[in-house]
Structure formats: structure tokens, C-alpha cells
């Protein structure tokens, strides 16, 4: 379970998260919605340990482990995965090489043995086929020259390969057409299960038709302004965020 207590975060002089409290129990999928500038991306970055975000108060724990005291790679080894809104291009490093290095680094950090090359390739073939990714694409430098949709698909591919227990999806639907959205959502849904949780960050209700959340939270002005069931997302789609922005 992910547990955030009164989390306060600054970027430079500006306070972005102003006492955010949130619990995502194990096995559940929660959606975070909110207007631009509410702090959605900040939340995903501060949880995964990107430099430049100063935590001034509060706590963040994943299954009792204090995330804030760990380096970004150590958090990844704890099973935390971020599907980036804008995935980075890695010139000269084939996707498979990158993912295998990442997988083995995580295993090493957890004191596990490295994955063998045949096992790795077998797993990669299965995941690629599930996500309708051409296997040859995985031999190309990661994300270099890929379309927006292909990049998002590669994020979900990496997620499937690394098999994390807590996943943050930052605007995974942006840049996807309907077909791609369906394939990506199917991939994400396949990863749902006991012991695995997700935080789905999105502007639009559309994604939530495909990835059905257990709970929906509204993030406005650095705090959780409202929480509810899936019906809250529909209400937001109808009425917009004005009410929460004003309340803040």
C-alpha cells in the first residue's frame, strides 16, 4: 500500500504540493484528476525521486518503506514504476539492452540472480506480442524516432517486463489514437492483480473507460480536494474543475 501523509513539496521558491494525504491500498487502482498546474506531475516525480523537488514536510511510504530517503534507482528496485508523460529517447542503446540492464540492476539491488539471456528474450517476446510491438523495434535504440503512440506502448512494455508492484501512469493516454489507447489499456489491465496497485494520472475521463479505477481523487492546488468512486470522474467530465479550483 502506498501511503502519503501531509506531503509538502517545493520547486524552487514555489510550493506545489501543500499537504497531500492519500492512501492507495494494495491491489487497487486509483485515478488522480485535476486541472493544469494542480501538481499532478510533481506528485509522480517526487514519488519516483527526480532531482529538483524539495520535500519540506510529510511522509511517503510504500508498504512501510520510506521512499523519500531512497535514490531513484533504489525506489525502482522497491517496485515503483513511472510511465512517463514524455518518454525519453536513448540514442545508441537498443530497447532490449536498456531494459535488460534495468532489470538486472533491480535484481541485483534486491539480491536476486541476473536473468539469463534466453529467459529474458522469451519474456520479451511474450510481452511484445501482447502489446502488438514488432520485435525488431526492440532492437532499435529506445524511443529514437518512435511516434508518440509507440513511445507510450514502449512504456507499458517496460512496465510489463519489470513487473513492478506500484505503477504511476502519467497521462498515458496523451498522444494515443483510439486503437493504440485500447492496446495500451489492455496491457495495463493485464498487470492488475492482487499485490499490485496503480495511480493513474489523467486529465480526461476517456482513459478511465478503459482502465476502470477503484477510486478517483481530485487534485487541486496541491491537495486532494475530493475523493469518490468512478462516478466522480463522470461528474468532473460534465462539470469541469471550476468548483475545486474556486474552493482552493
Amino acid at each position: 500500500m502506498l501511503s502519503l501523509r501531509d506531503l509538502r513539496v517545493r520547486v524552487g521558491e514555489r510550493e506545489i504540493l501543500k499537504g497531500l494525504t492519500l492512501d492507495v491500498p494494495s491491489g487497487e487502482v486509483h485515478a488522480i484528476m485535476g486541472p493544469n498546474g494542480a501538481g499532478k506531475s510533481t506528485l509522480s516525480y517526487v514519488l519516483t525521486g527526480r532531482p529538483g523537488y524539495e520535500v519540506t514536510g510529510g511522509a511517503a511510504e510504500l508498504d512501510g518503506v520510506d521512499l523519500l530517503g531512497l535514490e531513484a534507482n533504489a525506489r525502482a528496485a522497491q517496485g515503483l514504476f513511472l510511465s512517463f508523460q514524455y518518454p525519453l529517447e536513448i540514442p545508441g542503446v537498443p530497447a532490449l539492452t536498456f531494459i535488460r540492464a534495468a532489470m538486472n540492476a533491480q535484481r541485483k539491488a534486491r539480491g536476486e540472480a541476473e536473468i539469463s539471456a534466453p529467459d529474458f528474450l522469451k519474456q520479451a517476446r511474450v510481452c511484445a506480442s501482447d502489446l502488438k510491438i514488432d520485435f525488431d523495434m526492440l532492437k532499435r535504440p529506445l524511443n529514437v524516432g518512435f511516434s508518440g503512440g509507440e513511445k507510450k506502448r514502449m512504456e507499458v512494455f517496460q512496465m510489463a517486463m519489470l513487473s513492478p508492484r506500484f505503477m504511476i501512469l502519467d497521462e498515458t493516454d496523451s498522444g494515443l489514437d483510439i486503437d493504440a489507447l485500447r492496446i495500451v489499456s489492455d496491457g495495463v489491465n493485464a498487470l492488475r492483480g492482487p499485490g499490485r496497485s496503480m495511480l493513474v494520472i489523467t486529465h480526461y475521463q476517456r482513459l478511465l473507460d478503459y482502465i476502470r479505477p477503484d477510486r478517483v481523487h481530485v487534485l487541486a492546488d496541491g491537495r486532494i480536494a475530493a475523493s469518490g468512486g468512478p462516478e466522480l470522474a463522470l461528474e468532473l467530465e460534465r462539470e469541469g474543475y471550476d468548483k475545486y479550483a474556486r474552493a482552493a
Binding site: 531513484a72 534507482n73 525502482a76 536498456f98 539491488a109
Partner: peptide
Amino acid sequence: SEDQLFYAQQRGLPE
């Protein structure tokens, strides 16, 4: 790029 570095670290690679 620091962004590339963070991306790789987020996947589990030490700096």
C-alpha cells in the same frame, strides 16, 4: 541530459 539520467535511474539503474 539529466532527464535521460533520471529516466534510466527510474528504471532501476544506479547513476
